[in-house]
Protein backbone atom coordinates (compact mmCIF):
# COMPACT_ATOMS: atom_id res chain seq x y z
CA UNK A 1 0.00 0.00 0.00
CA UNK A 2 1.41 3.39 -0.93
CA UNK A 3 1.95 6.22 1.50
CA UNK A 4 2.15 9.94 0.93
CA UNK A 5 4.02 12.86 2.44
CA UNK A 6 2.62 16.32 2.04
CA UNK A 7 1.24 19.35 3.81
CA UNK A 8 -2.45 18.76 4.43
CA UNK A 9 -5.08 21.36 5.27
CA UNK A 10 -6.70 21.17 8.69
CA UNK A 11 -10.50 21.11 8.44
CA UNK A 12 -11.40 20.65 12.11
CA UNK A 13 -9.63 21.02 15.43
CA UNK A 14 -11.10 20.41 18.85
CA UNK A 15 -9.72 19.91 22.36
CA UNK A 16 -11.89 16.94 23.39
CA UNK A 17 -10.44 16.62 26.91
CA UNK A 18 -7.73 18.52 28.73
CA UNK A 19 -4.59 18.38 26.50
CA UNK A 20 -6.23 15.89 24.10
CA UNK A 21 -6.80 17.19 20.59
CA UNK A 22 -8.86 15.92 17.66
CA UNK A 23 -7.92 16.97 14.15
CA UNK A 24 -9.54 16.30 10.78
CA UNK A 25 -7.40 16.86 7.71
CA UNK A 26 -8.18 16.87 4.01
CA UNK A 27 -6.09 14.21 2.24
CA UNK A 28 -8.22 12.50 -0.47
CA UNK A 29 -5.37 10.50 -2.01
CA UNK A 30 -4.17 9.12 1.29
CA UNK A 31 -7.66 8.62 2.71
CA UNK A 32 -8.46 6.35 -0.24
CA UNK A 33 -5.81 3.89 0.96
CA UNK A 34 -6.12 4.41 4.73
CA UNK A 35 -7.22 1.58 7.01
CA UNK A 36 -8.20 1.43 10.65
CA UNK A 37 -5.17 0.81 12.84
CA UNK A 38 -2.72 2.62 10.58
CA UNK A 39 -1.01 5.79 11.75
CA UNK A 40 0.07 9.23 10.62
CA UNK A 41 3.56 10.64 11.20
CA UNK A 42 3.39 14.35 11.92
CA UNK A 43 6.20 16.86 11.71
CA UNK A 44 6.50 19.21 14.66
CA UNK A 45 8.20 22.41 13.61
CA UNK A 46 11.54 22.78 15.33
CA UNK A 47 11.80 19.10 16.24
CA UNK A 48 13.92 16.44 14.57
CA UNK A 49 11.54 13.53 14.97
CA UNK A 50 7.96 13.28 13.77
CA UNK A 51 5.20 12.14 16.12
CA UNK A 52 3.39 8.90 15.25
CA UNK A 53 -0.37 9.17 15.92
CA UNK A 54 -3.05 6.52 15.32
CA UNK A 55 -5.72 7.19 12.75
CA UNK A 56 -9.06 7.61 14.54
CA UNK A 57 -11.55 7.78 11.68
CA UNK A 58 -11.41 7.71 7.89
CA UNK A 59 -14.02 9.26 5.58
CA UNK A 60 -13.16 8.06 2.09
CA UNK A 61 -16.07 9.96 0.51
CA UNK A 62 -15.00 13.28 1.96
CA UNK A 63 -11.34 12.35 1.60
CA UNK A 64 -10.58 13.09 5.23
CA UNK A 65 -8.69 11.46 8.06
CA UNK A 66 -9.21 12.18 11.75
CA UNK A 67 -6.68 11.60 14.49
CA UNK A 68 -6.58 12.28 18.21
CA UNK A 69 -3.48 12.82 20.32
CA UNK A 70 -2.46 13.91 23.78
CA UNK A 71 0.03 16.70 24.37
CA UNK A 72 2.86 15.01 26.21
CA UNK A 73 5.78 17.28 25.45
CA UNK A 74 7.07 20.10 23.32
CA UNK A 75 6.56 18.33 19.99
CA UNK A 76 2.91 17.44 20.45
CA UNK A 77 2.37 20.88 22.01
CA UNK A 78 3.77 22.48 18.85
CA UNK A 79 1.49 20.39 16.64
CA UNK A 80 -1.54 21.20 18.80
CA UNK A 81 -1.02 24.91 18.12
CA UNK A 82 -1.92 24.40 14.46
CA UNK A 83 -5.47 25.48 13.75
CA UNK A 84 -8.19 25.22 11.08
CA UNK A 85 -6.93 26.12 7.58
CA UNK A 86 -3.30 25.70 8.66
CA UNK A 87 -1.30 23.01 6.90
CA UNK A 88 0.15 20.03 8.72
CA UNK A 89 3.20 18.17 7.36
CA UNK A 90 2.24 14.49 7.53
CA UNK A 91 3.38 11.12 6.22
CA UNK A 92 0.38 8.78 5.89
CA UNK A 93 -1.09 6.21 5.95
CA UNK A 94 1.61 4.10 7.60
CA UNK A 95 1.73 0.61 9.06
CA UNK A 96 -0.41 -2.44 8.45
CA UNK A 97 -3.71 -1.70 10.23
CA UNK A 98 -6.17 -4.12 11.79
CA UNK A 99 -7.43 -7.10 9.80
CA UNK A 100 -11.12 -6.82 9.05
CA UNK A 101 -12.82 -10.18 8.51
CA UNK A 102 -16.24 -11.33 7.33
CA UNK A 103 -18.29 -12.37 10.34
CA UNK A 104 -21.91 -13.55 10.60
CA UNK A 105 -24.66 -11.24 11.86
CA UNK A 106 -24.96 -13.20 15.09
CA UNK A 107 -21.32 -12.62 15.94
CA UNK A 108 -19.74 -9.46 17.24
CA UNK A 109 -16.28 -8.07 17.78
CA UNK A 110 -14.89 -6.50 20.92
CA UNK A 111 -12.66 -3.45 20.75
CA UNK A 112 -10.68 -2.70 23.89
CA UNK A 113 -9.05 0.69 24.29
CA UNK A 114 -7.10 2.26 27.11
CA UNK A 115 -6.62 6.02 27.37
CA UNK A 116 -5.01 7.44 24.25
CA UNK A 117 -5.27 3.89 22.80
CA UNK A 118 -8.99 4.41 22.26
CA UNK A 119 -8.91 6.53 19.06
CA UNK A 120 -8.03 3.75 16.54
CA UNK A 121 -11.01 1.78 17.82
CA UNK A 122 -13.41 4.28 16.24
CA UNK A 123 -12.25 3.55 12.70
CA UNK A 124 -12.23 -0.15 13.42
CA UNK A 125 -15.73 -0.11 14.93
CA UNK A 126 -16.98 1.46 11.70
CA UNK A 127 -15.88 -1.67 9.80
CA UNK A 128 -18.26 -4.02 11.66
CA UNK A 129 -21.99 -4.22 12.32
CA UNK A 130 -21.96 -5.59 15.87
CA UNK A 131 -19.34 -3.98 18.04
CA UNK A 132 -18.81 -4.06 21.79
CA UNK A 133 -16.44 -1.30 22.88
CA UNK A 134 -14.78 -1.51 26.28
CA UNK A 135 -12.75 1.59 26.96
CA UNK A 136 -10.77 2.44 30.07
CA UNK A 137 -9.46 5.70 31.51
CA UNK A 138 -7.82 6.94 34.68
CA UNK A 139 -10.80 9.07 35.66
CA UNK A 140 -13.96 10.74 34.35
CA UNK A 141 -12.18 13.85 33.09
CA UNK A 142 -9.96 11.68 30.86
CA UNK A 143 -12.84 9.94 29.05
CA UNK A 144 -12.77 10.50 25.30
CA UNK A 145 -14.68 9.28 22.24
CA UNK A 146 -17.51 7.58 24.15
CA UNK A 147 -20.14 9.46 22.13
CA UNK A 148 -18.21 8.90 18.89
CA UNK A 149 -18.17 5.14 19.41
CA UNK A 150 -21.93 5.24 20.13
CA UNK A 151 -22.52 7.29 16.97
CA UNK A 152 -20.59 4.67 15.01
CA UNK A 153 -22.95 2.05 16.44
CA UNK A 154 -20.90 0.38 19.15
CA UNK A 155 -22.30 -0.79 22.47
CA UNK A 156 -19.97 1.09 24.83
CA UNK A 157 -18.79 0.22 28.34
CA UNK A 158 -16.63 2.87 29.98
CA UNK A 159 -14.28 1.90 32.81
CA UNK A 160 -12.38 4.25 35.11
CA UNK A 161 -9.53 3.31 37.40
CA UNK A 162 -10.89 5.49 40.21
CA UNK A 163 -14.56 4.71 39.68
CA UNK A 164 -15.44 8.33 38.95
CA UNK A 165 -17.42 7.25 35.87
CA UNK A 166 -18.85 3.98 34.54
CA UNK A 167 -17.44 0.65 35.65
CA UNK A 168 -14.96 0.93 38.52
CA UNK A 169 -11.86 -0.98 37.48
CA UNK A 170 -9.78 -2.08 34.53
CA UNK A 171 -11.15 -3.33 31.20
CA UNK A 172 -10.31 -6.99 31.81
CA UNK A 173 -13.42 -7.94 33.80
CA UNK A 174 -15.97 -6.41 31.39
CA UNK A 175 -14.00 -8.06 28.57
CA UNK A 176 -14.28 -11.42 30.27
CA UNK A 177 -18.04 -10.90 30.86
CA UNK A 178 -18.47 -10.20 27.16
CA UNK A 179 -16.40 -13.18 26.04
CA UNK A 180 -18.41 -15.48 28.33
CA UNK A 181 -21.44 -14.84 26.11
CA UNK A 182 -19.67 -16.79 23.36
CA UNK A 183 -20.65 -14.35 20.61
CA UNK A 184 -17.26 -12.75 20.07
CA UNK A 185 -15.49 -13.42 16.76
CA UNK A 186 -12.47 -11.24 17.43
CA UNK A 187 -10.86 -9.05 20.08
CA UNK A 188 -8.85 -5.95 19.16
CA UNK A 189 -6.88 -3.94 21.70
CA UNK A 190 -4.85 -0.76 21.86
CA UNK A 191 -3.50 0.85 25.00
CA UNK A 192 -0.85 0.44 27.70
CA UNK A 193 1.20 -2.78 27.63
CA UNK A 194 -0.31 -4.34 30.81
CA UNK A 195 -3.77 -3.84 29.28
CA UNK A 196 -2.70 -5.43 26.01
CA UNK A 197 -1.23 -8.37 27.84
CA UNK A 198 -4.44 -8.84 29.86
CA UNK A 199 -6.56 -8.60 26.70
CA UNK A 200 -4.41 -11.18 24.92
CA UNK A 201 -4.57 -13.60 27.87
CA UNK A 202 -8.31 -13.17 28.33
CA UNK A 203 -9.02 -13.69 24.64
CA UNK A 204 -6.80 -16.77 24.67
CA UNK A 205 -8.75 -18.18 27.63
CA UNK A 206 -11.94 -18.04 25.56
CA UNK A 207 -10.19 -19.14 22.41
CA UNK A 208 -10.98 -15.93 20.56
CA UNK A 209 -8.40 -14.50 18.13
CA UNK A 210 -6.92 -11.18 19.22
CA UNK A 211 -5.02 -8.37 17.56
CA UNK A 212 -3.12 -5.68 19.42
CA UNK A 213 -1.64 -2.38 18.32
CA UNK A 214 1.86 -1.71 19.68
CA UNK A 215 3.64 1.53 20.36
CA UNK A 216 7.36 2.26 20.31
CA UNK A 217 9.69 5.24 19.99
CA UNK A 218 10.07 5.81 16.26
CA UNK A 219 12.28 7.73 13.89
CA UNK A 220 11.55 7.22 10.18
CA UNK A 221 8.07 5.64 10.48
CA UNK A 222 8.41 3.90 7.12
CA UNK A 223 10.60 0.90 7.94
CA UNK A 224 14.01 2.23 6.94
CA UNK A 225 15.79 2.90 10.23
CA UNK A 226 14.76 -0.15 12.28
CA UNK A 227 14.44 2.09 15.32
CA UNK A 228 11.08 0.84 16.59
CA UNK A 229 11.87 -2.79 17.27
CA UNK A 230 9.49 -5.25 18.88
CA UNK A 231 9.88 -8.91 19.70
CA UNK A 232 7.54 -11.26 17.88
CA UNK A 233 7.34 -15.04 18.02
CA UNK A 234 5.92 -16.27 14.72
CA UNK A 235 5.61 -19.98 13.93
CA UNK A 236 8.07 -20.79 16.70
CA UNK A 237 10.65 -18.36 15.39
CA UNK A 238 11.83 -15.37 17.44
CA UNK A 239 11.86 -12.27 15.30
CA UNK A 240 12.73 -8.62 15.83
CA UNK A 241 10.23 -6.69 13.72
CA UNK A 242 9.46 -3.05 13.07
CA UNK A 243 6.42 -1.56 14.81
CA UNK A 244 6.08 1.04 12.04
CA UNK A 245 6.12 -1.23 9.02
CA UNK A 246 5.52 -4.83 10.16
CA UNK A 247 2.97 -3.48 12.68
CA UNK A 248 1.75 -1.56 14.55
CA UNK A 249 -0.91 -4.30 14.63
CA UNK A 250 0.22 -7.83 15.51
CA UNK A 251 -1.56 -11.03 16.40
CA UNK A 252 -1.82 -11.05 20.19
CA UNK A 253 -0.35 -14.51 20.62
CA UNK A 254 2.74 -13.53 18.61
CA UNK A 255 3.76 -10.61 20.80
CA UNK A 256 6.57 -11.28 23.27
CA UNK A 257 5.54 -8.99 26.14
Amino acid sequence: MPYFCDKYRILEREEIAKDIYSYVISCPEAAAYARAGQFVHIRAEGYTLRRPISICEIDKKKGTVRFVFEVRGGGTDKISQLTVDDYMDIILPLGNGFSVNEISDEKSIVVVGGGIGVPPMCGLAACYKNVKAIIGFRSKDRVILEEDLKRIGADVTVCTDDGSYGYNGVVTLPLEEELKKGKTAMVYACGPLPMLKAAVNTAKKYNVPCEVSLEERMACGVGACVGCACRINRNGENLVLRVCKDGPVFKGEEVVF
Partner: peptide
Protein backbone atom coordinates in the same frame (compact mmCIF):
# COMPACT_ATOMS: atom_id res chain seq x y z
CA UNK B 1 21.91 -9.47 13.64
CA UNK B 2 18.87 -8.79 15.84
CA UNK B 3 20.22 -5.52 17.21
CA UNK B 4 19.62 -4.00 20.63
CA UNK B 5 16.43 -4.08 22.73
CA UNK B 6 13.94 -1.18 22.43
CA UNK B 7 13.69 1.71 23.09
CA UNK B 8 16.33 2.44 20.51
CA UNK B 9 15.39 6.05 19.75
CA UNK B 10 15.50 9.22 21.85
CA UNK B 11 15.04 12.79 20.75
CA UNK B 12 17.45 15.57 21.68
Amino acid sequence: KDGNPAPRIAET
